[in-house]
Design a protein around this nucleic acid. Structure first.
Ligand SMILES: [Zn+2]
Ligand SMILES: [Zn+2]
Lengths: 382, 382
DNA sequence: AAACATGTTT
DNA sequence: AAACATGTTT
C-alpha cells in the first residue's frame, strides 16, 4: 500500500488519530460527533487533499466477541455508501479498465472515448476488460460495479430500477431483480447496502485466459437511462472498484447511457460537447433532467439516521449562531431541535442537504467493529 | 321500454325464446352451449341488427332460493364485460352527454367536436353534463364511466393504470387506486368486474340544480394515454352508460387523450384528420401503438373461463371440419381438445381470438338467476 | 410556445 | 435510418 498519495495518507492519519486517542483512553463514543474533526481540522484536511479519498472497508464481524469488547470507531464510507468516491485511482495493483472497440457491436453498444461514455441498448451485454499488474493472483481480487448518478443534485440517491421493469422481472425471483447493472458471470454476487440502499454487483476477477493479460467480464443494464420512476433521464456512471480482502485497492469509472438509439445519441452528445468546447459557450449546455420525484425523505434513510443528521445540523447551526450572531441560524437550530424531539422531518433544499451530507459522511461513524480488529487496522495504517 | 329498436327486440326475442323453451321443458343447461343459437340463427340475427345490442343486466341474487330453484339462463354481457357495447344509444330516457365548451380550461383540457374527443392533462378535472327527459327522477339513475381501448386489437383488454402511477398512489389506499377514470363526487362508487377485470366508476345522476336541466359531474384521469405499462400510447374512449334498476337504458361515448400538451395534440390530430378527409388518402394514417406486452394469457381470464372458450372453439372447428372437410380445422380441433385435457393454453392470433370472443359473448351464459326472476324477465321482455 | 429529448413506427 | 410521437426543459 505504498502508493497512497500523500494527502490521502495524512487525512487517514488525522482522522484515526482522533479516534485512536479516544479508544486508548477507554472512552466509548456517545454519538457520531464524538470523534468528528473540528471545523479547523476539516478545513486543513480539505486544503491538503482537495478531493475525495479512500478508506478501507470494515464490516461488523458480529458475535465473535463479547459486548464489552465492542468499540464504536470512526470508519469511512464503504464503496457503496451514500456518497461513494468516484475518483479514478490505479492503486497499488495498477488497476485498468479497457473497452475493446474492435468488439463494438454497432447495433447494441458504442464507446465514446472523448466522453468516456458507453451508449448501450437495454438488456444487451458489453464486454469490459480489467487489468492488474499481478494477473496470476486474480482469484484474490473482486470487481464491484456500482451505478451512481453523475449530476451532483442526484448523486446521493441510489440508482433503482423503474416500477415497470421491476414488475416484469418480479415473477422470476432472481437475485439481480432490483439491480440495474448486471454482470453475466455465474460467480457474480448481487449486493444491497442496507445503510445506503445502493445495489452493486461483485464478481471475482479471476485469472486471464492463457496468453492474455486482461480478464473480460460481460455487463448489461436492465433499465434505460430514461426509465420513468427509475433513472428518469438522469445520466449515470458506473464505479468499478477493485477489491482485495474487503479493501478498495483501485477504482475506475465509466459513464453509461442506456437508450434505444446508441448511435444517434452518441453522435449528438459528441457533437454538442465539441461545439461547447470550440465556442467555449457554456450557455448551450444539454438539458438537465429535473422534477425528480425521489422524495427528500428518501435522501436520508431511516429515522435514527435522520435524527443523527439533524443533530449534526443543530451543531453546525449553533456554531454558526455563536460565531456570527445570525438570527436565521438560531431559528433553524431551534426548528431542528423541535424535529428531533417530535420525530418530524424538514424539507431541505437538495443542494444544501447534499453539502451537509458530504461533510457528515467525511466523518462517518456508523459502523461497529471489535477492539482487536481496530488495533490491527491502526497497525496497518500507521 | 317501447323505444327499443326493431332489430334489437327481435334478437332479444330469439335468444330468450331458445332459453325459455329449455326452461319450460324443465331442462337444466349442461354447458354454456346448450342454449346457443345455431350458426344460421346467428347469421340471420346479425343481418337484422348489423351491430351490437343491449341486454338487461342480471346479477346473482344468491341465497334467496333453494338450490333446486336455480336455473342457468342466457344472460348477456354486463356493461363492463370483456367486450362491452360502445354503440351510442339515446334510449327510452333520451340520454345525452354534453361538453360545455364555454367551460373549456384552455390550459388543462380541450374538446374537439369533429373528433368527438377530449384532450386533457393528467389529474385535471373536466365537467361533463348529462341530460335525461325526466330530470326530476334523477336519483333513480346512475352514470357508469368505463374506459375502453378504441383500436380493435386492444379492445378486449381492460384499461389499467401503469405501475409507476399505481406505486405512487398505493400508500394512500383509496378505493380509486386502480382506476384510470375518476369521478370527483363523494357518492362515486369504484367497481371492478371480477369476470373481465375492468374498472369502472358509477355515480348517482341526481337531480339538476334549480333552473337547470342537466347534471354536471367532474371527471379526471389518473394516468396518461402514453403511460408505459399502462395505456401505453393506445387511444381510449370512455363509455358512459345510463343505468336504472341495474339495466342499461342509454349509452354515450367520448374519446379521450390524456397528455401533457392538450392544445398541441388536438391541433395535430384535427389537422391530420382533415388532411386525410380532403385527400381521401388512407396511406397516411397516424402511427399505431404496437408491441404491447399484455400477454395473450390475460386476454381470457381464469382457467375455467379459458376452458369454456376452448370448448367453444372445438365446437366451431368441428363444425368447420364436418362442413368443409378442412384438415387444418380438424387438427386445430384436436389441439384444443388436448389443451382442454392438460389445462394448457394456446397462443392465439389476437385478431382471431377477438372474433371468437365476440361470437362467444353474444351468447354469454355465465350468470345464474332464480326461476321467478327469469319468469319476470320473460314477462317484461315478451 | 418553441426547442429539445428520446422511445417507436415506418 | 428517417420520420414521428410525446414528455420536458427553456
Ligand atoms: Zn426500467
Ligand atoms: Zn400512469
Amino acid at each position: 500500500m505504498c502508493s497512497y498519495r500523500k494527502g490521502t495518507e495524512r487525512l487517514r492519519y488525522l482522522s484515526y488519530w482522533k479516534a485512536e486517542a479516544m479508544v486508548t483512553k477507554g472512552e466509548e463514543f456517545q454519538s457520531s460527533q464524538d470523534a468528528l474533526l473540528s471545523e479547523n481540522e476539516l478545513k486543513y484536511i480539505q486544503e491538503q487533499i482537495g478531493g475525495s479519498f479512500d478508506w478501507p472497508t470494515l464490516t461488523d464481524v458480529g458475535g465473535r466477541y463479547s459486548e464489552e469488547e465492542k468499540f464504536k470507531v470512526a470508519i469511512p464510507p464503504s464503496p457503496t455508501s451514500s456518497l461513494p468516491s468516484a475518483e479514478e485511482w490505479d492503486g497499488p495493483y495498477d488497476f485498468q479498465l479497457l473497452v475493446n472497440t474492435m468488439n463494438a457491436n454497432k447495433k447494441t453498444w458504442l464507446h465514446s472515448s472523448s466522453l468516456n461514455k458507453i451508449f448501450i441498448d437495454v438488456n444487451k451485454s458489453i464486454p469490459l476488460q480489467f487489468k492488474i499488474n499481478c494477473p496470476d493472483d486474480g482469484e484474490a481480487f473482486f470487481i464491484r460495479a456500482l451505478p451512481v448518478y453523475t449530476i451532483s443534485q442526484h448523486m446521493t440517491y441510489p440508482v433503482n430500477r423503474c416500477p415497470l421493469h421491476l414488475k416484469e422481472d418480479e415473477s422470476k425471483g432472481l437475485a439481480s431483480q432490483n439491480h440495474v447493472v448486471r454482470c453475466e458471470d455465474f460467480r457474480a454476487l448481487y449486493e444491497c447496502d442496507e445503510e445506503s440502499k445502493r445495489y452493486s454487483v461483485v464478481t471475482p476477477l479471476g485469472c486471464p485466459q492463457p496468453g492474455s493479460d486482461v480478464v473480460t467480464l460481460m455487463y448489461s443494464f436492465a433499465c434505460k437511462s430514461s426509465c420513468c420512476g427509475g433513472m428518469n433521464r438522469r445520466p449515470v456512471m458506473v464505479i468499478f472498484t477493485l477489491e482485495k480482502d474487503n479493501l478498495v485497492v483501485g477504482r475506475k469509472t465509466m459513464n453509461f447511457r442506456v437508450c434505444s438509439c446508441p448511435k444517434r445519441d452518441k453522435e449528438k452528445e459528441e457533437k454538442s460537447a465539441l461545439e461547447e468546447k470550440l465556442q467555449n459557450n457554456p450557455g448551450k449546455k444539454p438539458m438537465e433532467a429535473q422534477n425528480q420525484k425521489e422524495s427528500s425523505m428518501n435522501c436520508i434513510q431511516g429515522a435514527a439516521h435522520y435524527r443523527e443528521i439533524l443533530r449534526y445540523l443543530i451543531m453546525l447551526k449553533n456554531a454558526e449562531y455563536l460565531e456570527t450572531g445570525s438570527q436565521e441560524a438560531l431559528s433553524a437550530k431551534e426548528e431542528y431541535e423541535g424535529l428531533c424531539l417530535n420525530g418530524g422531518r424538514a424539507t431541505f433544499d437538495p443542494q444544501y442537504i447534499k453539502l451537509v451530507l458530504m461533510r457528515y459522511y467525511y466523518h462517518d461513524m456508523r459502523y461497529i467493529i471489535y477492539k482487536c480488529d481496530f488495533e490491527n487496522l491502526i497497525l496497518k495504517i500507521l
